[in-house]
Design a protein around this nucleic acid. Structure first.
Lengths: 205, 205
DNA sequence: CGTTGACTATACAAATCTGTCTAGGTAACG
DNA sequence: CGTTACCTAGACAGATTTGTATAGTCAACG
């Protein structure tokens, strides 16, 4: 049975940056969509290569293992969600630096209300890998959670906290608690969390 | 046709070997230990029957499916952990009803510091079943989380909250955020959360 | 003794999963 | 043209998973 592909997707040449990025990008984009929506455990390699679409050998050419792919997904998630969305949008919306720690919760509310909200991959992945086998993925998830904590600690400092490290940690606990609540279906969790954050900041950390 | 269906079906083992626990209990105890420690997804039927120890056919005689067993585990967890430990111990330790909402966080700290602490099965199971296939287990986990919320709402009322429903929800967010932090390794999360709870209660809900 | 019912042990089915391998196709470049 | 890098399609290995089937053991009880 002759195989007839409709149009070549690899317009770019070899050795440069074009062709290599093409398949790799498709894999990573498919993994991003599927892992974000269903979790890294529930999504198998076969589903990713079907959606990319790409041959299985190509996936294992670009990523040594599924763990590698999951780590790459978490990095992309950090860049897109944490840095380019949550951080950038927070600092764009806040009228001054002191307001940032509160604006974060307004963005969370917006996130929770999106129809495709499916929880936080960092939290989910960290909890899914609580038993030791997956240490690489778990460490990556924890590292990314630490990035979020660093951002919140900075916002705590900018809000005038006496102890920014403590306030940052408390804000992250609030944020994660709200995310778990929202994963259960409580869309209003962000507003409740914001109320608590206001109190914490008003006290001065 | 022999009848006799209303009498309890489980008779104990041979008289010569003394009081051997019946198979259903052994299965549920093994499932409790393994699911609590490693999560309901990571533990397979084969491991449970090996630790029970019990034959596979016996397990499927007592529980229709793994989902059934997971639901039974969550119920047992609610009885033992939520009701007989967290609730009972909170009310035993608190000098008056107003203090209960804070004492909960002292118990959480104690829990986090236990060497066998492995997170909250209700949260983990709820997050693991975020995509629709496992709806029975997910609903069971959510229902058990609602029981915790009900307890916290009662403590909020007893602490004199103006709006016990809101304060109960905020306390549960704090509690879940602390549990996620502790699952990451932050043993001091409960103390941080208690500090926030004090502030919330001092304000009067 | 003979029936009954719970239990054991193990083989098996059917569906996963990750990762490897074969075998070949296509485009750019020297 | 020939080399080379990247890619495809899919078979396959080997290990898992849940759940069923077969066959037999043991104790209680009428």
């Amino acid at each position: 049975m002759p195989v007839e592909t409709s149009a070549p997707r690899w317009r770019h040449g070899r050795a440069g940056e074009g062709a290599r990025e093409n398949a790799r990008t498709r894999i990573l984009e498919a993994a991003y969509a599927l892992f974000s929506r269903h979790g890294v455990h529930a999504v198998g390699i076969d589903r990713i290569i079907a959606e990319a679409p790409v041959a299985k050998a190509t996936l294992y050419h670009h990523f040594a293992s599924k763990q590698d792919l999951v780590c790459a997904f978490l990095e992309l998630r950090e860049r897109r969600w944490t840095l380019d969305w949550l951080q950038a949008e927070t600092e764009r919306r806040a009228r001054d630096e002191r307001e940032r720690a509160l604006v974060v919760f307004d963005l969370l509310e917006q996130w929770f209300r999106r129809p495709d909200f499916e929880g936080c991959p960092f939290i989910n992945t960290m909890l899914e890998t609580s038993d030791g086998s997956d240490h690489v993925v778990r460490r990556a998830a924890i590292r990314h959670l630490d990035v979020v904590r660093g951002i919140l600690e900075r916002y705590a400092r900018q809000a005038g906290a006496a102890n920014p490290a403590d306030l940052g940690g408390q804000l992250q606990m609030l944020m994660m608690g709200a995310i778990v609540s929202a994963s259960r279906g409580e869309v209003g969790a962000a507003r409740q969390a914001r109320g608590v954050a206001e109190l914490l900041i008003a006290r001065g950390g």
